[in-house]
């Protein structure tokens, strides 16, 4: 095997710590033993790849999955997937899921007293194009209460799941909306210590992708782990 370049480790403070007491569910669900620092091998430098054969047309439009149109403010969420070297990540799977406009998920464990929208399931997926671009059509998700602390409400958010080109670039995150007053109280958002890294979870309003009389545009660029410049003794 030729030597493969490894992936850089996270910059301090830019990733959440799994032991984060303000988010109460972490207490019994984070490892207490130190992680075993390991070399990156072929097993981690590869990973599952997906293609258009895995998707159906319209999978990236969450507003056309039912007979009627969902209630809510239509949005277009788009952006680019890049690596830490600024290079586009092409043809990679992006999966999203979100609450409806009233802040309700059609899920058996969501008991929030807000209406289910029969025209909105809240899931979508797509592949990035050759320049790492993706685009979803959806509705703006509502905020919703949860029981983490007194009067706890999640800020409006969309869950994003990405694979990149390797097991090491697998990433699940949440996209937030600009100006949301709930962000300051949200322990998932505040779990990221670094100011800039935290703020990069907030999408920006994008006039250019806003469609007149149809939908507001939000831009959310995502950065996956990038590779070291030179191959190291790894595989």
């Amino acid at each position: 095997m030729t030597k493969l370049a490894g992936y850089r480790r996270p910059h301090p403070g830019t990733q959440p710590d799994n032991d984060y007491p303000p988010y109460r569910s972490t207490a019994k669900r984070h490892p207490t033993q130190p992680l075993v620092i390991a070399p990156q091998t072929l097993s981690e430098l590869t990973g599952p790849l997906f293609g258009w054969d895995d998707l159906k047309p319209g999978d990236n439009d969450l507003t056309i999955q039912h007979k009627g149109e969902p209630i809510g403010e239509r949005i277009i969420v788009s952006g680019r997937v890049l690596d830490e070297n600024g290079k586009a990540v092409p043809n990679t799977l992006v999966e999203i899921w979100q609450a409806n406009a009233a802040g309700r998920y059609p899920h058996k464990t969501d008991r929030h007293n807000a209406p289910i929208d029969p025209n909105f399931s809240g899931a979508g997926r797509t592949l990035t194009d050759s320049e790492g671009r993706y685009r979803f059509i959806s509705i703006r998700p509502g905020e919703y209460p949860w029981r983490n602390h007194y009067n706890a409400w999640r800020p409006a958010h969309i869950h994003f799941s990405l694979f990149g080109q390797a097991f090491l670039t697998r990433m699940i995150t949440q996209m937030y909306f600009p100006g949301d007053p709930l962000l300051a109280y949200d322990p998932m958002y505040t779990s990221v210590a670094d100011d800039n890294a935290r703020k990069r979870l907030i999408s920006t309003f994008d006039w250019e992708t806003t469609v007149p009389e149809q939908a507001l545009g939000y831009r959310f660029d995502i950065v996956l782990r990038g590779r070291d410049a030179t191959p190291m003794e790894r595989s």
Binding site: E84, A197, R200
Partner: peptide, 18 residues
């Protein structure tokens, strides 16, 4: 040079998207 986007939990409703 950029830093990777922060991870966030899948939360309780992961099944909807995954």
């Amino acid at each position: 040079s950029l830093y990777a986007t922060a991870n966030q939990t899948v939360g309780p409703y992961l099944h909807i998207g995954l």
